[in-house]
Nucleic acid binder design. Structure first.
Length: 931
RNA sequence: GGGCGAUUAGCUCAGUUGGUUAGAGCGCUGUCUUGACAUGGCAGAGGUCACUAGUUCAAAUCUAGUAUCGCCCACCA
């Protein structure tokens, strides 16, 4: 083995072997365990959030697979309608072509071609991370069978009256020219303006002043509204005003939607271009006046001079005209909320179109019930509040998109405009008994991507085809065990899956939903291209040169002026680029950070720390292999095990239990920490060091039984630890395991197919012995350092006082203490030793004296002892205060009181000892330096 | 406006049903190249657990309030 752990080569090698061996497929044996991968966009590349979540999923999958569960990780990607069209359109434009030159079929062909060439980037990257998914079952939302599920769902919902089509005000993206759902609109706080406009009264008795942030929409105003209780305007209701620039007259109405406190208390009502106004208009029976074309230019409903202007030009023109007519009273800055499309970033228009909707009342109730009844459980539990709030305020779901890439809506129109919904045109004709000469035209729209991903749980398991359901394991794997995802798609996906799977299968899609935190940069900032703080997980695995990183972060910027700042920050933060940490180090960093908080700050220093940890593990393995040879070791009987071997096995058993508990609570951080501490603090820092004396040639021939037990324990503990670590760091554990399995006497092809270790009982006696031993060694080392004694130089140790058990332990472990604390010999103190020539350390009641060559530096030793005394006195004070409290003694549990009492005794003894020692030293000091 | 969350060492965070003198990693200080590992060993320094009041024998932990910060949802033109 190399001296230093080097992840790159071994990671590549092992993934291929695993995948080829088929060990990621479900075995069909054991209790099923299934995780659905939230299908990433086909256009996507692996970002930190994916890498994080995939690591958690893979850790669970590998863990459960080792525990003998029949494990299925269902992976796949979704077709991402808008995103994919944008990517392909950009590609066409980059080649000098134009999207408009493509027919629908040609464009779709082109998208498929793109998908075949570039659509598997993210799944390749998942393999780099070590994701142990069953790739033979990978699915795409546009696969024929998943498309069939989409059609079936649409038709059935339509038959049940849960899907309808109609003219509604929807969120319209005038650039992409499609409707989008409420969820795809992001409300952004922006600085806008508020204009106050004068509407002259037609009776000549003055004006009505309204405030608006969108003056261009006045072309579509149908009335002015005031609050019914607003005394100022009571006489105005029922009157008419002149709508500026149009020559139209509109009435003033009363509606309690109006907030009398805001602005002038008068509101212009534009039902076709504002969701609230739509409601108001409907209440008062106004016909909405749509003034926009689909690209948000002014249409023929408006006076001629504005027609053809886009919405922003129209605003300028209207402001100018109002000013010219003296109707503009005021223009002031105004903080407002602007709706923007999450994909295009464009300002969204409320726009009147015909769209398809899913009725949400019934489905929403079902979705709520499935969670409230506990059939689906959120982890952490608070997320139920978020879910509940949304489910209780559902609006109908606009599912049609004016795109080409996606599942085309299975609805056909005849020439009379009748709508026929069916699984195919043939089915529609047959069912409606339509003659062959009746012309049918299929709806041009497609369904939004989330409609198909909502079916992911049951459609990937074969629904609705009974034959496929049987072969894919529909009954076996549904409900799946747990869904792991971020809170950002609770509404988009989680809720819709619960409703759809619940509605169509009567089952829940998953029993638990583990909501992960969001990965941020080390300062807590969201990672984004425009902030220039994005880390690419692949760069953390492979490393990246500074120049390349700078290029990556500053190229193709939406706002090029930020590039300079980003470059500077990047050069400061990563002066040497990013080193190659390897996939395992990245993975275990993620699991270590995966607490139950909402944000996860990703710090490269943590990643480096875990890379170092893996290097430590690597070297512990080197040491072990060096000592155990490469043949199967004889297995010692329990009775032959030495105390320290029993101790490390006991600690190992406790670690197994801790990891299991942590994983069942989705506390990946605690699981990781338990393993880190065991490997580093127990196994490396103590057991390996304590094993060295026993393995030395002379010692081994003097006590072959202990040497044998030690060798076997080294191999056994290392091998078991590798299995515990394997779900988190699959590559390095496989690499080492292949070398240790023979000496450890374990059979198997791959660590990924070995069973998860079973925890035995802890050995309290061995633990107590080891703790004592560690305390004594640490006390000596500490004294040594504090007195500036040469660390390597052997020295004698004298012992005083001590309980019989101290003395017995000293007898048993003296050799180890000598070796680890670098002592010459240990012997009982006697009167020959002048305290002035010794330093003292305390371990429990045991007093450890270190004779010094010359006189001890009295001042220094006094300072040291006083510090210890102070500490003990403080401890005693706290304990004594408690015990002096009668109510504590009366009320606290007996064991707590007893513990305090024994502590009190310990402190008192230590204080007596230290005080005596200090007094003697002071006398010596005075004798040496008379005043 | 409604909801959720956070506040513990210089930084990033643990701290499970209240019970030692509140822990870890990184960073910092000192020291050591000893045949696993300098991506390391050993030994250290460092905290008024945001604040206030309460409950309790006992509070980082429970309750109420205050402050600061963050996120999600929502129709104030």
């Amino acid at each position: 083995m190399d001296k230093t752990y080097n992840p790159h080569e071994l990671e590549q090698r092992w993934y291929h072997r695993w995948e080829e061996s088929g060990c990621f497929r479900p075995t069909g044996q054991g209790e099923p365990y299934c995780i659905l991968l939230p299908p990433p966009n086909v256009t996507g590349t692996l970002h930190m959030g994916h890498a994080f979540q995939h690591t958690l999923m893979d850790a669970l999958i590998r863990y459960q697979r080792m525990r003998g569960r029949d494990t299925l990780w269902q992976v796949g990607v979704d077709h991402a309608g808008i995103a994919t069209e944008m990517v392909v359109t950009r590609q066409i434009e980059a080649e000098g072509g134009k999207r408009e030159d493509y027919s629908r079929d040609d464009f779709i062909d082109r998208v498929w071609q793109w998908k075949h060439e570039s659509g598997s980037t993210i799944t390749r990257q998942m393999r780099r991370l070590g994701a142990s998914a069953d790739w033979s079952r990978e699915r795409f939302t546009m696969d024929p069978d998943l498309s069939e599920a989409v059609t079936e769902t649409f038709v059935r919902l339509h038959e049940e009256g849960l899907i309808y089509r109609g003219p509604r005000l929807v969120n319209w993206d005038p650039v992409l020219q499609t409707a989008i759902s409420d969820l795809e609109v992001v409300n952004s706080d922006e600085q806008g303006k508020l204009w106050s406009i004068r509407y002259p009264r037609t009776d000549g008795r003055g004006d009505v002043v309204v405030a608006t942030t969108r003056p261009e929409t006045l072309l579509g105003d149908v009335c002015i509204a005031v609050h019914p209780e607003d005394a100022r305007y009571r006489e105005l209701v029922g009157q008419t005003v002149e709508l500026p620039l149009t020559g139209r007259r509109i009435p003033v109405i009363a509606d309690d939607y109006v907030d009398p406190e805001f602005g002038t208390g008068c509101v212009k009502i534009t039902p076709a271009h504002d969701f609230n106004d739509w409601e108001v208009g409907a209440r008062h029976d106004f016909q909405p006046i749509n003034i926009f074309t689909p690209t948000a230019t002014i249409n023929e409903q408006a006076p001629g001079r504005y027609r053809g202007l886009d919405r922003f030009e129209a605003r300028e023109r209207i402001i100018a005209d109002l000013k010219a007519e003296g109707l503009l009273i005021e223009e002031k800055p105004h903080a407002m909320v602007v709706p923007r499309g999450d994909r295009s970033g464009q300002i969204i228009e409320p726009y009147l179109t015909d769209q398809w909707f899913v009725k949400m009342d019934e489905l929403g109730e079902l979705g709520l019930e499935l969670v409230e009844s506990g059939q689906v459980e959120f982890v952490p539990g608070n997320w139920i509040n978020t879910y509940r709030h949304w489910m209780e305020n559902l609006k109908d779901w606009c599912i049609s998109r004016q795109l080409w890439w996606g599942h085309r809506i299975p609805a056909w129109y005849d020439e009379q405009g009748n709508i026929h919904v069916g699984r195919s045109e043939d089915e529609v004709r047959a069912r409606q008994a339509l003659d062959a000469d009746v012309v049918l035209r299929q709806d041009e729209d497609v369904l939004e991507t989330w409609f198909s991903s909502a079916l992911w749980a049951h459609s990937t398991l074969g629904w609705p085809d009974p034959k496929r359901m049987a072969s894919e394991g529909f009954e076996r794997y549904l409900p799946t065990s747990v869904l792991i995802t971020g809170f950002d798609i609770i509404f988009f996906w989680v809720a819709r899956m619960i409703m759809m799977t619940g509605h169509f299968t009567g089952k829940v899609p998953f029993e638990q939903v583990y909501i992960t935190g969001l990965i941020r940069d080390s300062h807590g900032q969201k990672m984004s291209k425009s902030r220039g703080n994005v880390l690419d997980p692949i760069d953390l695995i492979d490393g990246i040169e500074l120049e390349h990183l700078v290029d990556k972060r500053t190229s193709a910027m939406m706002q090029p002026h930020l590039a300079k700042r980003i470059e500077k920050a990047t050069r400061e933060e990563f002066p040497d680029g990013i080193p190659a940490f390897g996939a395992d180090a990245l993975r275990i960093t993620f699991t270590a950070l995966a607490g139950h908080g909402r944000d996860i700050k990703f710090d490269l220093a943590r990643c480096a720390g875990y890379r170092n940890f893996l290097n430590k593990l690597w070297n512990a393995a080197r040491f072990t292999l060096m000592n155990v040879g490469d043949e199967a070791l004889p297995v010692p009987a329990e009775a032959e095990l030495d105390t320290l071997s029993r101790w490390i096995l006991s600690r190992l058993n406790r670690t197994i239990v801790e990891v299991e508990q942590a994983l069942s609570d989705y506390r990946f951080d605690l699981a990781t920490r338990a393993l880190y501490e065991f490997v580093w603090n127990d196994f490396c820092d103590w057991y390996l060091e304590l094993s060295k004396p026993a393995l030395q040639e002379a010692a081994a021939s003097a006590d072959p039984a202990t040497a044998r037990a030690t060798r076997h324990t080294l191999a056994r503990v290392l091998e078991t630890t590798l299995r515990l670590l394997h779900p988190f760091v699959p590559f390095i554990t496989e690499e080492i395991w292949q070398r240790i399995r023979v000496p450890a006497g374990v059979v198997g092809e791959s660590i990924s197919q070995t069973p998860w270790p079973e925890a035995g009982d802890p050995d309290r006696q061995a633990e107590a012995d080891a703790e004592w031993l560690k305390e004594v060694i640490s006390a000596i080392r500490s004294a040594r350092t504090e007195l500036n004694l040469a660390p390597g130089k052997p020295m004698p140790l004298l012992i005083e006082e001590g309980s019989p058990s101290d003395l017995a332990r000293m007898e048993r472990f003296g050799g180890l203490i000598r070796s680890l604390a670098r002592l010459e010999h240990i012997e009982p103190a006697d009167n020959r030793h002048d305290p002035a020539t010794c330093a003292t350390a305390l371990a429990g009641e045991l007093r450890l004296l270190i004779p010094l060559a010359g006189l001890v530096d009295v001042a220094e030793e006094l300072a040291r002892l006083s510090k210890q005394l102070e500490r003990e006195e403080k401890g005693l004070e706290i304990v004594a205060k408690k015990l002096a409290n009668e109510r504590f003694v009366a009320n606290a549990p007996a064991e707590v009181v007893a513990r305090e009492r024994s502590r009190q005794g310990e402190h008192q003894a230590a204080i007596a000892d230290l005080t005596g020692r200090i007094r003697r030293l002071q006398q010596v000091g005075q004798a040496a330096n008379p005043p």
